[in-house]
Every structure is written in C-alpha cells, then in structure tokens.
Design a binder for these strands. Structure first.
Lengths: 361, 361
DNA sequence: TTGTAAGCGTTATCAG
DNA sequence: CTGATAACGCTTACAA
C-alpha cells in the first residue's frame, strides 16, 4: 500500500514485535515456534504495509542473490536469441530469480568487463550462450562460478552444455523426404566447417543409407549459408531434368529461400517438382515463404530451459562434480507445404509451359 | 589474482591501513587528501589481490544499484527486440550499469510479478518496452520509479517515451518512389488501426500531395500485415495494366514479401515493372529477398539508446519534472534494389505514362 | 592524513 | 515463544 520502501523494521513496529520475530514468521523458520496470534498479527501488518524484503540486503546476508547472468556473443542481435532468453527467464522465475542479459559482440574486452560486472553483483551463476553452435573455451573468470553453456560445447568435461542435436536434425530431414517417396536427394550444406554442417550431413547420410539409397542418388554440395548461396547451388543442381534431385535439404531456411527462387526461375514448382526441407524454422521466413517451408526447428527455448535448470541445480548443490552433464536436444520437424511425393508425370521438358511462367534469367 | 571474494578488509590489512582509507583512495573521495605513498600502497595491494567492490554491499549502502530493468511484452520473442536490448545495454554499460531483461508475454500477472522482483532488487529505473508501437498506460507500480517507455506512448505527460517517427517513414517512402519518377502509387497498409498504420499513411499522403500527385493516383488498401496479406492485396491491385501502380509502399517487409510473389506470378519484374518499398528492414527478409528490398528501418537501437540515456538522467536528477521529454525517431531508408524508375517501354501491353509529368530519376 | 563507528536491511546465533 | 545483537561488505560523518 504505502509506496516507497517499507522495511522489516516498520513491520515490526506496526505489529509490536521485534524484527527478529518478523523475519521468523515471514521466512517460516523451521525450528521456531511462534504464537499463532502474533504470527497472524505480523502477517497482517506485513500485508497491509505491502512489505517486500529488500533483496539487496537479503543477498548480502545470505550470499545468494537470486540473480543469474546470461552472456552471449550476439544474444540480442539475432532472431534466435530471444527464445534462449525466454527459456532462461522462465526457469529463473520459477526459482525466484531474475536474469541479467549482456551482449559481448564477440569482443573479448567487452566480455571481460561485463562478466566482471555480473560477478561483482554476486550473480548465482552464469549462462554462457553462443549464437551459433560452436565449440568454445570457458572464460577464465568463470572457472569458479556455476556456469552452463548454451549452443556451445566445451572440451573441459567439468562444464555443462546444451547444443542442438544436429545429426538427429539431419536424420529427420532425410526421413521427411525419403518417407514422402523421394529417391534422388541433395543436401546443400554450409561451406563453413562447423558442427552444424558436419552433424546435419552425417545424420542425413546415415538415414539415407538406412533407406538403402545409392551413393550417387545423394548429392551434397556446399555454399554460403544465405539466400544467394542457396540460389546458386540450386541453379547448378536443378539443371538436368534426368538427374535432378527431387528432394532438397537445405542447411538453413535462408538458403531454402534462395532455392525457392531458383526453382521459380527454372519453372519448377514447389513441392510438385522439387520438395524442400529447411532448417531453423526461422520466424517470418519459414512461414512467410510460399508454399510454407517444411523445416527442422532449432531447440532454442529448450536449450535455455535445460541450461537454466542445470544451472540452478548446480547452484544449490555443494560442489560441482568433475563430470558435468551435457545434452544434445532434438528439434521438432515443422511440417508445412514444401514437401510432397515426387511428381510421377512426364518430365518437365515434355510438359507444356504455363503461359504465365516465362523463365527469367 | 586470488579468486573468490576479496573484501575491502583484506585490502586494508594487506596495505596496513584502515578500510576507510582504502575506500577513500579507491573512490577518490573529493575532500580527502591522502598521502601519495599510502595511496600507492593501497592501489598496489588492491590490484595485487584483484579486489573489486561487492556491489550488493555498495548498493545497499548508497541506495544506488547500478542496475536497470528492461521489461517488455514480447521483448525476447521478436526479431526486433534485440536491437532495443542492445541499445539499452550499451548506454547502461557507459553508466556502469547492467540490465535485467524480463518478458511479460502480455500477461498482467507476470508483469506484476516481474516488476516486483525488479523493484525489490532496487533497480535504479525501468525501461518499459512494447514490441509494436502502441499507446500504453504505465503500470501503477512504476509510478514512483524512474521509467521511460520504448516503442510506446503514454497519455500521462509526466512519463517519457520514444517511438518511431511513423509519418516521417511514410514520407520517406513516398519520396523514394516519387523521386524515382513514379506517378501512380499505392500503399498497402495494415488493417489494424494502430499508430504505425495511421502515421505511415499520413506521411505517405502528405509527401505525395507535396509532389502534386492527384488523388486518384494514390491508392491505399489494407490487408493483414503478413506475406499472405501483401500477396492478396497485390494480386488485386496489379491486375489492370492501365491503372496498375508502378510504385508500391508496403506497411512492412513481410507484406512486401507477398507482393514479390504476386508480382512474380503476374510476370512482373521488380523493380522494372513495379518498384517496391517496405518497412522495418527486417533481418533476413529485406536483404534475403531478390532483388534486395528497399525499406525504411525502424530505429530500435536508437530508441533503446535514447530511452536509456533519458532514464539515466532521470535517475541522477533530483525530482522528475512534471513534463517529461518524448521523441519520435526517424529511421533511415535502406536503399537496395527494389526501386527503379518506372519502365517506359512497351514490353507489357501497357500504354504510355501520362505525359504531363515526365520527370526523370 | 588517517581511523572509528554508524548504518544500509536482512538473517542467524544465542539468550532470555 | 521472543528479542538483542552480530554479521554481510561497503560508504560516510565525524574524530583524532
């Protein structure tokens, strides 16, 4: 009620007891038996005054700030980041905690400064997130603080981390195409040599092999992981009608965007003439494309949740074990309209071109 | 060096002085003259021990936490949010502060709970951000806390806010098209009755009028603010060759995405047959489309910066004035490749442009 | 020039 | 059952 800062002292005065007693009843101190009547009185006054403990004082005393830090390289700049923050915040809230988020912009100096800032504020732990799945090394400052990595792995077996299950994603993508009946597949992979590229290809190949697909029916080419890269790769790949893949898996949705364009230019309809599977389920792209893009979602929210939960158990446990848990989280496949059984009719060259579809080059 | 928690007391002991002296030298207390030699000693020991003041204690004592809160309805879920966070963080860092970010998900209850959590942590102030430009009313809890609104306006003249300059955006869009030579324009506006819709239309019309454009040469229709909406509107609008607008301004980039598709289906080339201007400069869409979309960028980062700076001056000033500053920030136009002079040739069954206004590019 | 001590708002120990 | 009182780590009168 009364605005401003009402302290435990005022509650005590109002209830005609000592602050000790107030603290006892408000915190439900185990060993303490308090007269029901005074307890009521205290509770009533506290409520009436709108008392809420000052957590700075509380933290100082208990050495527990109920605060965690989320530091990321590009955490705030990228469309994916949000979900991670959200996941972390949701579990933080469940632990009466709130989260500081800081963006380092890949600057070591900024990172150091900000981590210091967090540490001086006695954060109970730190979530260290990378925007893109990659191996990192833990900043030295964090050696003695509960920390868990998100979207990043670490050689040190003592640090916990969560990453997407890339190869499961690759498998799922293959499964979607294969089970729709496709037998000539292609994977347009990222040129960069990163875990996501390795993992997705590995899974894709593995599942294709499991279906008995012949080597020559699975082409893998690499390109820049953007619309332009996807476009160029697709132009190259979609040329010969005989050998053209009927199902294409793209490293990410942005590349898929380029593949759509290439297909349109070549007068190929998605999904009738080519089925396409993306990766990321990127907001406004996957669902903005026409037809809607079937894609594998990255488990950002889930990683945030897992990591935060892991962090809180680490915080409340005495000493961290020498071997920290790690996880690879599988993202769901989001079915939209870019995958269909391969077209069985005559080959494209024999068909009549629709009049409104002049090819542009 | 020594990890863990080194306190001022340890520094004092190591330097052979009292904690008062340590505090004095470390804080450069104005009125105090300290012997250069002891000052050196203190500094040296502090550095050697790697001392950093515990800000919880400091905050408790000084009643200044060097901490601000950024609460938003969807702050973390949307691709725009990041820039706001970034702007806020950048200026926070310049003020030795760090920012809590919380997402309310439009739930009043969550909002209350989280704001309480921030207040109990003694945040120095709060940035209250809306994901989409709209009027809001300030949560009652924030009445006595320095607060500034981002992407939201407020009827209360005592609260400060920053919003995008929508009508300037509309003007700029019109200018881009008109100065490229277009004389038959269209604006595909959002059906929702929101400030962005009003403002952009108003600006667009105003600038068109300033160029002397006749009423009938500026069509405005509304649609859902997504690719589907843009697509349908464009299909409707791009039909008759005679009356077809040569320049289209879309309420946002997502709608523009749909317009691209409609244009492609109608065998109209962008920008040769239709020039398109979007709004938002949304990552991965505006630059992912082909050809690249010319668009008006929303000043998220700038709003974050302005608001945070405003917040810090408010924090360090005694009492807030009855009339708080507000601002409308103009976003830059991002020139890409979706705008060109109207095509003068005859490849389409289009007749000549009205000869009255034959300007150039 | 330096030190003592009070106090920020809590919690925890230990008496009464 | 309840209440002094000492921390938590720091800043800041006020003394010396």
């Amino acid at each position: 009620m009364v605005q401003g800062k009402v302290t435990i002292k005022q509650v005590a005065a109002a209830a005609g007891v000592s602050i000790t007693t107030v603290s006892h009843v408000l915190n439900n101190v185990p060993g303490k038996r308090i007269h029901p009547e005074t307890r009521e009185r205290v509770l009533a006054e506290a409520a009436r005054l709108g008392y809420a403990p000052n957590m700075l004082a509380q933290s100082l005393r208990t050495q527990r700030s109920h605060t965690i830090g989320l530091v990321g390289d590009e955490i705030a700049t990228t469309p994916f980041a949000g979900k991670i923050i959200l996941g972390a915040q949701d579990v933080a809230a469940a632990h009466d905690s709130v989260v500081f988020v800081v963006n380092t912009g890949y600057e070591r100096e900024t990172e150091d400064r900000e981590i210091d800032a967090l540490l001086r504020r006695q954060v109970d732990g730190i979530l260290y997130a990378s925007m893109y799945h990659r191996p990192v090394e833990l900043p030295a400052k964090l050696a003695n603080v509960p920390t868990v990595l998100i979207n990043a792995s670490c050689a040190d077996p003592a640090v916990a981390w969560a990453v997407p299950d890339e190869s499961a994603g690759g498998e799922d993508a293959a499964e979607v195409l294969l089970s729709a009946g496709h037998r000539r597949l292609a994977f347009i992979n990222d040129v960069d040599e990163i875990p996501a590229a390795f993992g997705r290809e590995e899974g894709f190949r593995r599942r294709a092999a499991a279906w008995g697909l012949a080597q020559e029916d699975l082409r893998v080419i690499t390109a820049e992981a953007d619309p332009g890269g996807g476009y160029q790769a697709a132009r190259r790949m979609l040329n010969g009608a005989m050998t053209r893949p009927t199902g294409i898996f793209c490293f990410n949705d942005r590349m898929a965007m380029g593949v759509y364009r290439a297909a349109a230019e070549l007068n190929l309809k998605v999904p009738r003439d080519v089925s396409i599977v993306g990766f990321d389920n990127q907001d406004f792209i996957a669902d903005g494309l026409y037809p809607g893009l079937t894609t594998i979602e990255l488990p950002h929210y889930e990683m945030g949740v897992w990591a935060a939960e892991q962090l809180f158990t680490q915080i409340s446990s005495e000493r961290k074990p020498a071997l920290a848990p790690t996880t690879r989280i599988r993202g769901p496949v989001i079915h939209r309209d870019s995958v269909a059984p391969p077209f069985q009719g005559s080959s494209l060259e024999e068909r009549h071109q629709p009049a409104d579809r002049r090819s542009n080059a």
